[in-house]
């Protein structure tokens, strides 16, 4: 590993990882002792953690090599695609074409936000430098997809549970926008609540993982805080734009040009 990545940090050996694994064994034995039945899942989860993170580590090490700069494009596409898919899958209802809409929303909001941060705020040279772009995009996508799935879930639930109310407004001369406004507002609000909540308590209840990582690595806490502020704002901006984006795109799909609620388009996901 190049020196730049280990500056100030205490390097971990394989032995250290085994000690950490011992902590999982404690959890496993508690599960066995109290017959929680979680030990198999816990073991699988631990193995997956190790395997996935090691894989990502090797991939990142390879991608960060300036010789492979073009590899950023497929990686970004896969990241956004997986994020949009999981945002959609988590909502309890869906409609045809929702994944594409989530994908478009995430490309427009998360990617642009991240590029603004790497290019202008951090001023990375070049702005697509993978060691900046990929981790930041990952953080933005992870939070944005939460917001989007909550927003989508709320919107679709509102429109199917309160269909009569929406159609009552339409019957009394409301345009589709007037009839949908309450549902859209509720949905965007619900998508934004988690990020606003975490902004409210950040640093008091928990130190954010990125900041903790930087401090462990020996960075100046104030520098770490500045980075964290940027990250929080970036996430808030991307999440709100993402919620509004998916809400509007869903609205265009679920209300017809004849100002009808296209109720039959909403499908309940079989769980």
């Amino acid at each position: 590993m190049p020196d730049t990545f280990s500056s100030g940090a205490i390097p971990l050996s394989v032995f250290d990882l085994f000690v950490a694994a011992g902590l999982v064994l404690v959890a496993g034995s508690i599960s066995l002792l109290f017959r929680l039945g979680l030990e198999r899942r816990l073991a699988l989860a631990s193995v997956r953690t190790v395997a996935q993170l090691l894989l990502v580590g090797y991939v990142l090490q390879w991608v960060f090599d300036p010789a492979h700069v073009l590899m950023i494009i497929p990686i970004v596409v896969v990241m956004v695609a997986v994020a949009s898919r999981s945002a959609v899958v988590r909502a309890s209802r869906s409609f045809a074409g929702v994944t594409w809409r989530a994908f478009g929303t995430l490309v427009l909001t998360s990617l642009i936000t991240t590029v603004i941060v790497t290019g202008i705020v951090i001023g990375a040279e070049p702005w697509y430098g993978p060691q900046y772009l990929i981790p930041l995009l990952g953080m933005v996508l992870g939070n944005s997809l939460n917001g989007i799935s909550l927003c989508l879930d709320s919107l679709l639930e509102y429109l199917s549970q309160r269909r009569d109310e929406v159609e009552m407004h339409l019957s009394l001369g409301a345009s589709r926008w007037e009839a949908a406004r309450d549902a859209l507002r509720d949905a965007v609000r619900r998508g934004m609540i988690p990020i606003i909540n975490s902004m409210m308590v950040v640093g008091i209840v928990a130190l954010p993982g990125m900041m903790t990582g930087q401090i462990l690595q020996g960075a100046d806490p104030l520098q770490a805080v500045k980075y964290q502020i940027v990250v929080m704002f970036m996430i808030a901006g991307a999440t709100s734009a993402g919620c509004i984006g998916i809400a509007l795109l869903s609205y265009r799909r679920l209300f017809t040009r004849r100002h009808q609620l296209n109720f039959s388009a909403i499908a309940k996901r079989s769980v």
Binding site: L170, S171, L172, G173, A174, S175, E178, R258, H259, Q260
Partner: peptide, 9 residues
């Protein structure tokens, strides 16, 4: 349609 439904309610 909104103008129509406002008259045919």
């Amino acid at each position: 349609w909104p103008a129509y439904r406002r008259v045919v309610t």
